[in-house]
């Protein structure tokens, strides 16, 4: 398998094959289709607000996710479906009402357009309740349960599924939806955490602002987005001197680390591609050097580190000067 930098252009949720982590990630990432063929599909479902403030907040999350996917990750509009309590609030962005029936149809439609190796992200937000298979999010009309979502997702065996339930009392979705090639994120650790959650807002903010990009490589992985939101939630509760009543859970951090939101287009210019490759080689040297830090003298380590980092920085400058994107 070629482990060269990805060449997929216009990837939104893209699976990374990075040399530095190749061995660790190979098993998780190896089953994916070639990156250039990979497509991403986003389904956003927000439930009943109950009060004006929640209606606005849920709609705001849906709108922001739509925008970040279509403008920053370049997901084709046809691959984005947004179902909300009231689709008339924003007809340009919202595709319909988030009834159980509409959700089922959205999954059906998605199943017709996905290909093997694609990435599917489902983002669910609202007021949750119930336990285990009966866990649910309050939608207009009958509420679909966690078990219903399990049924709808059961056909996506050839795709990577990222399922985010940012609703309150969402923790029990973990057990119900767990499965291979799936990452399940819930804003709470169990159905007992019933207070309104703050996870969704921070999760979306991390994606919008790229603040979640912990290693500053220009991409935000699912793991980075999750870690960012979790930390931000904790900080918010602490700032408000409130007891933390939501503990977010991620099902598979290894797989989550390989799936990124947004991508970086590889240049077709061979000069740029060569520079990128050289820079990547230098980054691998930094990784190797870091592994030896404990056994090296401080001064020697720092000198070598600085040499490599300066070289990387200069390489980035050269890439940009050559018209590429570092």
């Amino acid at each position: 398998m070629d482990l060269a930098p990805l060449a997929g252009v216009g990837l939104m949720f893209h699976t990374m094959f990075r040399r530095a982590a190749a061995v660790a990630l190979l098993s998780a990432a190896g089953a994916f289709a070639p990156a250039d063929a990979q497509q991403q599909h986003l389904l956003v479902i927000t439930g009943l607000g109950g009060e004006p403030a929640y209606r606005t907040a849920f709609a705001d999350v849906a709108r922001r996710l739509h925008d970040v996917a279509t403008t920053k990750w370049n997901v084709p509009a046809a691959n984005v479906t947004v179902l909300t309590e009231d689709a008339t609030r924003d007809p340009a962005r919202f595709d319909g009402r988030s009834t159980r029936e509409a959700v089922g149809e959205a999954f059906l439609a998605m199943s017709r357009r996905v290909k093997a190796g694609d990435v599917i992200i489902v983002f669910l937000h609202g007021h949750g309740s119930g336990q285990a298979g009966e866990s649910r999010v309050n939608l207009p009309g009958p509420d679909p349960t966690a078990a219903d979502f399990g049924t709808w997702l059961s056909g996506f065996t050839q795709q990577t599924v990222i399922f985010v339930n940012a609703a309150s009392a969402s923790g029990d979705f973990q057990r119900v939806l767990a499965g291979p090639r799936r990452v399940v994120l819930t804003s709470t650790k169990s159905a007992v955490e019933r207070n309104d959650t703050r996870f969704a807002g921070h999760f979306v903010k991390g994606l919008e602002s790229l603040e979640a990009d912990a290693n500053k490589d220009g991409r935000v992985t699912v793991l980075e987005a999750f870690d960012y939101a979790r930390r931000a939630v904790e900080r918010e509760y602490e700032t408000d001197s409130r007891m933390l009543t939501e503990h977010a859970v991620l099902s598979d951090s290894t797989l989550a680390a390989t799936v990124a939101f947004g991508g970086r287009a590889a240049s077709s210019d061979p000069r740029v591609a060569a520079l990128v490759a050289e820079r990547q080689a230098l980054e691998e040297q930094v990784a190797a050097l870091r592994a030896k830090k404990a056994i090296m003298a401080d001064a020697a380590y720092e000198a070598e580190l600085e040499r490599l980092l300066v070289a990387i920085a200069e390489k980035s400058q050269a890439i940009r000067a050559a018209g590429g994107t570092p």
Binding site: K216, G218, L282, L309, V310, I312, A313, S316
Partner: peptide
């Protein structure tokens, strides 16, 4: 240097270095 040690690809930090 501490920043870039953990995030060598952080372009703004590269420029500052």
């Amino acid at each position: 240097l501490g920043i870039l040690e953990s995030a060598p690809g952080f372009e703004k930090a590269q420029a500052l270095l």
